[in-house]
Design a protein around this nucleic acid. Sequence first.
RNA 1: GCCGAAGUGGCGGAAUUGGCAGACGCGCUGGAUUCAAAAUCCAGUUCUGGCAACAGAGUGUGGGUUCGAUUCCCACCUUCGGCACCA
Length: 983
Amino acid sequence: MREFRPMPRYNPSTVEPKWQGFWSQNRTFATPKLPASDKLYVLDMFPYPSGAGLHVGHPEGYTATDIVCRFQRMRGKSVLHPMGFDSFGLPAEEYAIKSGVPPRESTEKNIATFTRQLKRLGFSYDWDRVLATTDVEYFRWTQWIFLQLYDTWYDKQSERGRPIAELPIPEEIKQAGDDAVRDYQDDHRLAYQHEAPVNWCPALGTVLANEEVKDGKSERGGHPVVRMPLRQWMLRITAYADRLERDLESLDWSYGIKKLQSDWIGRSTGADVDFFIGEGSRGDGPGDEGSLQSAFEDWKCGRASSGFPEKPGEDVLRIYTTRPDTLFGATYMVIAPEHPFVERLTTAEQSAAVTKYCEEAAHKSDLDRTQLAKKKTGVFTGSYAINPVNGEAIPIWIADYVLISYGTGAIMAVPAHDERDFEFAQVFELPVRSVYEVPIKAFHGTGEPSEDAKAESEQFYQWREEVYEGRACFSGEGKAIRSGKYDGIETPEFKKRIIEDVSSEGVGRGAVNYKLRDWLFSRQRFWGEPFPILHELDAEGKPTGRIRAVSESELPVNLPHLDDFKPHGRPEPPLDKAPEDWLYPVIDGVKYKRETNTMPQWAGSCWYYLRFIDPRNDKAFVDPEKERAWMPVDLYIGGAEHAVLHLLYARFWHKVLYDRGHVSTIEPFQKLVNQGMILGEVEMTGYQTESGDWVSAADVTEDDEKQPVHKKSGAALKSVKVENEDAEKSGENFVLKADQSIRLVSRAHKMSKSRGNVINPDDVIEEYGADALRLYEMFMGPLEATKPWSMQGVSGVKGFLDRAWRMIVETDAEQMQLNDAVNDIELNADQNRVLHRTIKAVTEDIESLSFNTAIARMMEFVNFFTKEEPRPKRAMEQFVLLLAPYAPHIAEEMWNVLGHSSSLAYETWPTHDEALIKEATIEIPVQINGKVKVTVNVASDADRAAMEAAARADEKVAGLLKNANVAKVIVVPNRLVNFVVKP
RNA sequence: GCCGAAGUGGCGGAAUUGGCAGACGCGCUGGAUUCAAAAUCCAGUUCUGGCAACAGAGUGUGGGUUCGAUUCCCACCUUCGGCACCA
């Protein structure tokens, strides 16, 4: 065994465990139950504890938050900085199926690994608060929140969720009996069951939320997803769409993330309009208008007095449009293949074609629908509807480009002003009628238009003509034409007026729609939270359709032991195979079957930030007093991959809890920052043919599978990694040294096992130490930027820590002792200036999360002070405090060497003195016509005249100005002098 | 196609109420130290021309505003990320 003694040389492998042990033993970062001073809640997105362990992306965000926390503690704030594990989810279960290890076992093992790795990085978490979403005592409260959702309906009047007991029951429902009342309530709960076509993934054996499906494949694993009808639990997130959108405004999030969320919610405004169809399927068309037209007149009269009904009757086709101002341009209508009116509207002669089309549409997966999106398909129903604004009968078509799940599942088609309608009209040769004047494009720039501009203008007029003739589509805004009394009105005004008019006639009304759909909340998997729901069974063991919530006192509903939880490709969940005594509880003599679906992985992460405030409470999910004291989260840092789903779901749950009086803030996360991705090391890639001949990257393109192929011949090529010394730069590009005509590609790629460029943080710590890893990840570049890894960069940062160490610690001594050059002396003016400039910059940079520049300033400090001998001890102490948030282990050790016996974690953060930063004289550039000619020294408080005089006094400037005609002199105090010289 | 972010030395990046472009780090070159190496220290390092002093060019491209533009305006190109028939 190696002899242990204090090492004069900086050795992270002894310093770091020493201080990690110290913090742990002294519970240095334990947070009081209630804040003792100004509170600060800083949160990391907790990790999924995968079997692969921590990757270098994790410490990036975690170091950023840790710096802020350590800094703010030194500034006297009460800081809550917890960590936990998002441990439910598919991978543990997939692993269990392969290996036979129960998910709880592998999950606990992974959590232990993650904990060890996180502790090795020296993060100042309050480990007393650690939690995992798979802890029974945690998901007990996840289930409890589900019950809150189940017990809540959304009151549109007051715009908030209220207890289901307060739901007003209409008289006719009351009279229909208890079952009707219960059904009515169930229809209004925020958590409800619904049978609808869902995204079923046979390979994963579960349904997926819309958000988890990309290009018709599962986000996890990339397995195909098909649509099939299933009865599922849904959460009524759409009720909160408006608030989720509106409240974004109050948040300190980047514009990009807000936009992403806002686009996902997808609020649009327009109008609902009813088109009269009479009894349907009568084929009343242009040739047979009589009966439908006269019925339409009667209907319109009726509507004028009755107004616009809440629910459309059988005699109308209700559509939603964002452009009611194009009503006069509607030349046909389209309904979705799943629309309930399909059968009614189909005439006998069209019946066969319609049935065939709808069947095909039903079997298409989302993938087929999107991939075949290139060409529009559809079929005519044979029926017509009457446009309420002009009484015109127009044909009704069926097409899958209209989605049943958005708006009313039916549209009016205005091919002249909507690209999709135009495409469809082209395919089926339907009429196109433009009702807008195409505004003349304004030309940019000044003077004569160039040849290009003239050609462009020519093209524009040609296109404009095509729009008027119905051969092109214009989706912009302008002045109305062919729109009766609305002619000449600009689009926004037209919209307003026509909505008023159709409303007063009772044929339409202003309407709002969202892209956001309700959240499909159940999964057919084992490793998730069981629903606290029971289905009542009758004497024969058949479900009666009644459901019952597990009472709060019966929570948690734990997962039963299951030997086999393998999905079988059928929609029955694995929990259906649970032991009888778990599956069939009897309450008051009534037998029930438990809900066997489980919650999706998102559930646990929707509220973990609340549990951290009071993690061991067994009476409530969080104590209200503590919740009020700590919420909201002041800073939340994590990856952009959660920009939509996790953040939207968590905000939704939070708002429901707010409405029900369980939390005190309307939003959970006040400030959000997304860390950028860390890529692998930059690689130089060249391309070779099968036979090994080089091909220039300029001649390479990608095929459909993203494999490199030769641009001209299409022959498959192989990518070859080229060493840096075999490449050189030529103009804009890198080329092969041996053959300069061969261009290479220099690029950093995402870290992936298959590419073999994954950096393991444990290895980095082994070689350079945790402080170097932390410092490097912060030094790489701006927190939010995507940046490539560089091992040489880590080594460079380690070199800085070595120099800092030598600046303070005597490396020639046998014992750990202060460097002889460090003495108790006063700082001179230069030293003060450097010290105070550093304090100022580092402080401001932490506040703006600009860690890379803060580190650069500390490097400058060390570069300066290593040259100073003797070195004032006080400056060294102040520096160590500045460094501490970034590299806490080495800072604690140096603090120790500087003669302090305890941790610096709560030492007072240094402050700067502006007066000491100011220099007596400053160097300013002197320009002539904006070009710097010389620099001159002037007093830092010199006025304009003095600066100009100093500039003119310079020999070279005087020479240059001698025979020149100085038209103007621009003097910017403290900045520069510029002589404007005319020839 | 739409939306968002970004294009600065050999590389990561710095500088924006418009004011000396390239801080800091890597790499590279030369030197010191060493038997030697590692480590460390010193000097240099945007490009072009020149021994040098110096001169010219330069922040994706093209234009514009200004005494002065990496920063502001217009048009475009490229890369990355997201969304994708939402009427």
